[in-house]
Design a protein around this nucleic acid. Structure first.
Length: 1398
RNA sequence: GGGCCCAUAGCUUAGCUGGCUGGAGCACCCGGCUGAUAACCGGGAGGUCACCGGUUCAAAUCCGGUUGGGCCCA
């Protein structure tokens, strides 16, 4: 197991995981491994290949991928072939646009072959693009072998299916009135029509009644162009109509219309007076004859004959709207057609394919486009006095779904599936399907089936599966049902494309009349293509084996619009071919809507590109969000924020994983060796709790997955990770993992933590496959992929519901305590004396006592008491409240005395007496009886106690502070401060330090008992109280009312230990022992024989030998021992060593810049320093010097043993000397003295002075930029370093030529990574070194600090400050106060010449 | 106009067959923690459970209606 250092960065992680999948062929292996499982036929609903995927498509595929992965983990052998729907009008339209084609005619003149080839190209291009996008989502399907509806083999299956329908007499050609798109010149299915509002004429036409002078049927219509096709009028038989004498100006006429609409009409048409002559039921009007208003223009209207022609018919379809009389044009409307059929009216439809009137309409109209002809027809009506009133109306009108042009209705020959004849079978098949949710099938799909009409499957287009129908002029029909059969056609060429136009050239000989049969030129509705995919993708009927193995499909999922689409088309084809549904179960999912709940639209720019989301937050975050956001069957208002939240959850998972592996890897924990069973006895209650939670989660998740409630499954996992694992368990086990010794207790925690993580990622594997894979690889690594694991089954032996309930209570109580602490202003570091729990039942008490440790440690409580169930807490302060009324009545003059006496007696005693019946009181020698009615009792909380209620009882928290508690609190505060300092110094976790503290007597006393603990926690080898604390880093802190100064010095042990650890076979433990003994580095032992090394306790002779060998491995030509030649002591300068408190991790530090020039203070020679060691005489000092200790540095790193070799140095003295020098450093930095930042405010600075540094404190960098620009205007060269996007800064502040360097991990040019202080320092140095200097604006200090450590950045600033001073330049730094801690701000302020508050 | 679904805090949502004080997350304000740390945690504020009516001791929950939104159809 590797220690994980990196943060969760999904983009990189997913890239790596995908690369691993690719290089190790994981997908293939996972599928191979599943092969022995039970077959599970998943059917992919083929997305239409147009452009790129949208959020809805992504959601759809994520649902599928998640379920496929889940089923595989359950042991199913899942068939996962994806499909693409590639024929049809949408692509034709795209190709028309790209080729600049506007009509069918142009397609034919330019050549259908070219057109169709281009369509195919487009479809394949889009297929490839979408495939890439699905892969980005992490969707695992068989992308190398998708089924394509354009594949000839696929098309052959389609043909075969049609043949089945034909053989069952369910496929027929018929004349129908159908919606027709005049632009696309094709019939449209209902599914291909979109409705929206359109403004059309609203006209009232007078149909003159034959035989009644000046009497008219008033007919209303919105389609004037259909009037030439009018053959009858219709009324509703049950409605009441009136015959009225209407007067408008000079005009008087008799009108027939719906009674209820008369008033409305009067208003609309401006009728001044209307006299009702007669009322009649609609049925009474039937048979009235009228004269067609345009007979003179439309010859057909003169010739047409028939009983019902130009008469009033009845129909219950007529609505009670407008005039209640509708005109019937059987050639222009489906209802009209039906009514006409009933009354032997031969449809008259004088309109051609492009929507122009034909010659049949008469030469007046012929060739004119019908919708454009509306005004002409209207003026013709006006001219003939037939127009009663004209206006406009806005109503929903159908449009072609592709070209958006309004549809018209006309009569054509089309091929139909007679769906109406087998609706009962469809319903039965639908009932047999298991729908999720059930109303999707039981209500929605059923409703659609019930209202279904015959399905028109022919389209007069080019890019589609050709209808496999050849029809002879004699009426004979032949259907081709396979590619084999097609080969017998005349004109067949081996290997030919069977699309149009090539297939159009094939003919058959009619077996009846032996003439040549041409193909019916239509293509198939694409919905039929998709409908047969369940067997077409298996190659049926050519390939029977696969069909027998897989069919029918187990599960499909698509959005609710597929009720009329794929759900339906499959049901129909399934019945036609096999008499049953091709799928067994369906999950109907919702639509992805915009944030505000509207449909996403590319044209309106409200569509969100999933690829963009993946590229910013990762596919896993998107997947997690899509699944958890809501129930799959509900529409989703897509929120970017939600994806971010999902990303955060994964980050928490990652952090827990990072945390766990840090300690597991240090201890080389091997989860495969430690079995849960074997550590059962080592488990604490906390562990058993988490194990129980794990098992409960497994069950909850599995139960939800089984019914496709993926939102519940996902949320359950998320809840476990965030609440149980991260927020609670990790907190509980922290201390256990920090322990250095390796014990059973720690091992148990490791195991449980590992169990929690591995279960979580197993359950997450189908949902977030990448992060699961990455964690799995490091956490367990076996099997090769997380996706090869079995789905985790619940192990009930770990389930302990009582324990789970108990922990719930503990957490509830913990929250209460947190609140009380906050209200009482006592933070968690301060221990609280005790908590008393009063619970409803013994069970609750037991549950809480069982988790006492967790409760106490998590809340920093010292003790827990419980109150027996039913009792009051005995420490409640009971007080007596005398009732003067009752007392006075009996004892009159004594009553006030009695009250006083009662109050002074212990209330408890009084209560005990009263509870027995009475209490006696002595007064003036008399015994007075106090009866229950004379007193009442009240109880109050003792001082310093706060009470609160939880769901199963109450708690009392004793907040009293004692010196012991206070001293513990203080020590915790100090620990935290020292830890903070260690961190600021950039010390390694394992480094040892030396701490000196200056504090008040009071605090000193407190610390007496806690010294060891503090030293241990902070890895302080020395911990001392000092007047003037020394150290590499010294900070003044305020804790409560106390002020103390803490100095921390690194002992640089880590480097020594690491050095020792280089020796083969060396353990941490042994290295430590060597070190403690004084062998602080390999070099320190280089003159020792191995026997001497072996003297160290715990070091065997073998160890010693190894050390010796290692040291001397290169010793062939050993370098001379240290120089012992005497040198004039007086000229000995202090050795140059890199100074500074953070030399540990620090190429960075050293690289920043040379240390600022030493201060002017007179330098002491090494000998002078040496002589300061108490008790060291000159002779001994000289001996030391002679022994090679010629600088403070040499002493600092020496071991006492080394020193004793010098004459006159005892071991005690050696220790003293080293102690003196252990924290020696270049006596330069002002940071060695804590100085309260002086207020160097210069708020009025507008002219920056050269050679000065300025710190501008402001929330947003504004003033700093203004100053920067001002300086540049005065002729200084500028150099800007910023965290903000450079282009933005440049334009906002109009920076033009000024170099702007971006602190960022992502940019390329002019970018410096925030961690790369070396580069930054170099760049600035170069700039400042230019002749004439310049001004540097450093905006983004906070960012540098968070990316490095504070001290390192401080060093950089010091160095810059000095360079600025030398180069006559200016340093301007912007900082937001709120982002820094106060001591950090103080230190910063101290480094600059002026602080400006912006 | 018909069918189906939906409506709970500013946003996204939990709340099963009616029953404890309607829970979360995001955003907001305040605080805490500080070796998981660009992380994390706690607290606060914020609700006429769309509206009207009914059933019931009791309705966010069941029933009827209205309004608004989505999908499908006419």
């Amino acid at each position: 197991m590797r220690q994980v250092d990196e943060n969760y960065s999904p983009i990189q992680l997913e890239k790596d995981v995908k690369a691993l999948w690719e290089s190790s062929r994981i997908y293939d292996k996972v599928k191979k491994a599943a092969e022995s499982g039970r077959s599970y036929y998943f059917l992919d609903g083929p997305p239409y290949t147009t452009g790129s995927i949208h959020i809805g498509t992504a959601w759809n595929k994520v649902l599928k991928d998640t379920m496929i992965r889940y089923r595989r983990m359950q042991g199913f052998n899942v068939r996962d072939q994806p499909g693409f729907d590639m024929h049809g009008l949408p692509i034709e339209v795209k190709v028309e646009q790209s080729l600049g084609i506007k009509s069918k005619k142009e397609i034919e003149t330019q050549g259908i072959d070219k057109f169709v080839s281009t369509c195919k190209e487009f479809a394949l291009k889009f297929k490839a693009k979408m495939t890439d996008e699905f892969k980005m989502l992490g969707v695992w399907m068989d992308w190398d072998n998708p089924y394509l509806t354009v594949d000839p083999k696929y098309m052959a299956s389609v043909w075969w299916t049609l043949k089945q329908a034909y053989d069952k007499n369910l496929l027929t050609m018929d004349v129908r009135v159908l919606p027709w798109c005049p632009r696309c010149e094709t019939a449209l299915a209902e599914a291909e029509i979109e409705y929206w509002d359109e403004t059309d004429p609203s006209i009232y036409v007078k149909f003159a009644v034959v035989g009644e002078a000046n009497t008219y049927l008033l007919v209303w219509t919105t389609t004037p162009w259909t009037i030439p096709g009018n053959l009858a009028a219709a009324v509703h038989p049950e409605l009441t109509y009136v015959v009225v004498r209407a007067k408008r100006g000079m005009l008087e006429e008799t009108l027939i219309l719906l009674q209820d609409k008369l008033e409305e009409l009067k208003k609309v048409a401006g009728i001044e007076d209307a006299q009702i002559l007669e009322t009649a039921k609609g049925s009474e009007l039937v048979g009235m004859r009228y004269k067609h208003p345009l007979t003179d223009l439309v010859p057909y209207q003169q010739q047409v004959t028939g009983k019902h022609v130009h008469t009033v018919l009845q129909s219950t379809e007529v609505a009670a709207e407008n005039t209640g009389i509708v005109h019937i044009a059987p050639g222009h409307g489906p209802e009209d057609f039906e009514i006409g059929k009933k009354h032997d009216l031969k449809p008259f439809s004088p309109v051609d394919e492009s929507g122009n009137y034909t010659a049949e309409a008469g030469e007046h109209y012929a060739g004119k486009n019908v919708r454009d002809a509306n005004p002409l027809v209207m003026s013709d009506l006006v001219e003939r006095g037939a127009m009663f009133h004209e206006g406009t109306v806005t109503h929903r009108y159908g449009h072609c779904w592709r070209c958006k042009k309004p549809v018209i209705y006309r009569i054509t020959d089309q091929w139909f599936l007679k769906v109406t004849e087998f609706k009962d079978k469809l319903n039965a098949a639908n009932d047999a399907v298991k729908w999720y949710p059930d109303w999707a099938g039981a209500s929605r799909e059923k409703d659609w089936i019930t209202n279904a009409r015959d399905w028109c499957i022919s389209r007069q287009r080019y890019w589609g599966t050709p209808l496999p129908i050849w029809r002879c002029e004699c009426g004979n029909v032949r259907l081709v049902s396979s590619l084999e059969e097609l080969k017998s056609a005349k004109g067949y060429v081996e290997g030919m494309d069977v699309h149009r136009p090539w297939i159009d050239r094939l003919t058959f000989e009619c077996d009846k009349c032996h003439k040549t049969m041409p193909r019916v030129p239509d293509v198939l509705d694409v919905w039929f293509d998709a409908g047969v995919c369940s067997w077409a993708s298996l190659g049926y009927p050519a390939n029977q084996d696969d069909f027998n193995r897989w069919w029918p499909g187990e599960w499909i999922t698509e959005a609710h619009d597929q009720t009329r689409g794929w759900f339906y088309s499959q049901l129909v084809t399934g019945i036609l071919a096999f008499g049953k549904s091709p799928y067994k179960s369906v999950l109907m999912h919702g639509w992805a809507l915009t944030q505000s709940g509207e449909a996403m639209s590319k044209s309106e720019g409200t569509a969100i590109d999933p690829v963009g989301v993946i590229n910013t937050l990762g596919a896993d975050s998107l997947r997690l969000y899509l699944l958890k956001a809501n129930a799959p069957w509900e529409d989703m208002a897509f929120q970017q924020e939600g994806v971010k939240a999902a990303n955060r959850t994964l980050n928490i998972l990652w952090n827990v994983y990072k945390f766990a592996t840090l300690y597991m890897s240090i201890d080389k924990f091997d989860p495969s060796i430690t079995k849960l069973e074997s550590i059962r006895d080592d488990l604490r209650a906390d562990d058993r709790w988490l194990l129980s939670r794990i098992e409960s989660m497994k069950k909850n998740v599995t139960d939800a997955m089984e019914v496709y409630e993926l939102h519940k499954a996902t949320r359950a996992i998320e809840d476990f990770i965030v609440e149980d694992l991260s927020r609670w368990y990790v907190k509980l086990v922290r201390d256990r993992l920090w322990k250095e010794e390796d014990d059973k207790d720690k091992r148990a925690a490791f195991k449980v933590l590992h169990e929690a993580l591995s279960t979580s990622i197993s359950l997450l594997a189908p949902i977030t496959p990448h992060i699961s894979e990455a964690i799995h690889a490091n956490l367990t690594g076996k099997p090769e992929s997380v996706h090869m694991l079995s789905w985790p089954a619940q192990d009930t032996k770990w389930v302990d519901e009582k324990l789970e309930e108990g922990m719930k209570l503990v957490r509830e109580i913990s929250e209460l305590i947190a609140r009380i602490r906050q209200e009482s202003n006592i933070n968690l570091r301060w221990p609280v004396k005790r908590i008393v729990v009063k619970a409803q039942s013994d069970e609750v008490i037991e549950q809480i006592l069982g988790l006492k440790d967790a409760l106490l440690t998590q809340n920093n409580l010292k003790d827990l008491d419980v109150v027996p169930v039913g009792d009051e807490w005995e420490e409640m302060i009971l007080s007596v409240v005398p009732n003067p009324n009752a007392i006075g009545k009996v004892y009159r003059q004594w009553s006030s005395k009695i009250a006083v006496l009662l109050k002074n007696r212990p209330a408890k005693t009084i209560k005990a007496g009263i509870d027995k019946g009475e209490y006696s009181l002595g007064i003036e020698g008399q015994l007075v009886k106090i009866l229950p009615n004379m007193v009442s009792f009240s109880s109050t909380l003792p001082p310093d106690v706060v009470g609160a209620d939880f769901s199963k009882g109450s708690i009392y928290i004793d907040l009293e502070q004692t010196p012991a508690l206070e001293s513990e609190g203080f020590s915790r505060e100090i620990i935290r401060r020292i830890q903070q300092m260690r961190k600021d110094m950039g010390l390694n976790v394992e480094e040892f330090v030396r701490v000196e503290i200056q504090c008040s007597r009071r605090v000193e006393n407190f610390l007496e008992t806690w010294k060891d603990k503090i030293a241990k926690e902070t890895r302080a080898r020395r911990f001392e109280i000092a007047e003037q604390p020394r150290g590499d880093y010294i900070v003044e802190w305020n804790i409560e009312t106390e002020s103390l100064v803490i100095g921390v010095a690194s002992m640089k042990v880590k480097a020594g230990l690491d050095d020792l650890l280089k020796v083969p076979g060396m353990t941490q433990d042994k290295a430590q022992k060597l070190y403690d003994h004084g062998h602080t580095s390999l070099a320190s032992m280089k003159d020792l024989p191995d026997e001497d090394i072996a003297l160290v306790e715990g070091i065997t002779k073998l160890d010693a030998r190894r050390v010796y060998d290692y040291i001397h491995k290169d010793d062939v030509k050993a370098p001379a021992p240290p120089l012992v030649t005497a040198q004039p002591m007086q000229v000995q300068a202090p050795a140059q060593v890199p100074a500074g408190p953070a030399p540990q991790s620090s190429e960075v530090v050293q690289a920043i810049a040379p240390e600022p020039a030493p201060p002017q203070a007179p330098q002491r020679s090494f000998m002078e320093m040496l002589m300061e060691v108490p008790g060291l005489d000159q002779k001994a000092a000289e001996a030391l010097y002679d022994a090679g200790f010629t600088s403070p540095q040499t002493l600092k790193t020496a071991s006492p043993m080394d020193l004793t070799k010098a004459k006159g140095i005892s071991e005690g003295m050696a220790n003293k000397i080293i102690e003196q020098f252990i924290d020696w450093r270049e006596p330069t930095a002002p940071a060695t003295r804590p100085v309260k930042a002086e207020v160097k405010a210069a708020p009025t600075v507008t002219d920056l002075e050269r050679s000065f540094s300025y710190l501008v404190e402001e929330d947003k960098p504004e003033a700093s930029y203004t100053l920067f620009i001002t300086a540049m205007k005065k002729g200084m060269k500028g150099y800007c370093v910023t965290r903000n996007y450079p282009a933005k800064i440049r334009s906002k502040f109009d920076l033009k030529e000024t170099p702007v360097v971006w602190l960022s991990n992502v940019g390329r040019e002019n970018t410096i990574r925030p961690k790369d202080l070396e580069k930054l320092s170099l760049a600035l140095e170069q700039f400042l070194a230019q002749p004439g200097g310049g001004i540097v604006l450093l905006d983004g200090l906070e960012y540098l600090i968070t990316n490095n450590n504070f001290i390192t950045v401080l060093r950089l600033i010091q160095s810059l400050r000095d360079q600025v001073a030398i180069n006559q330049s200016i340093l301007l730094m912007a900082v937001n106060r709120s982002t820094l801690e106060s001591h950090q701000l103080n230190l910063l302020e101290r480094e600059v010449d002026y602080t400006i508050t912006g």
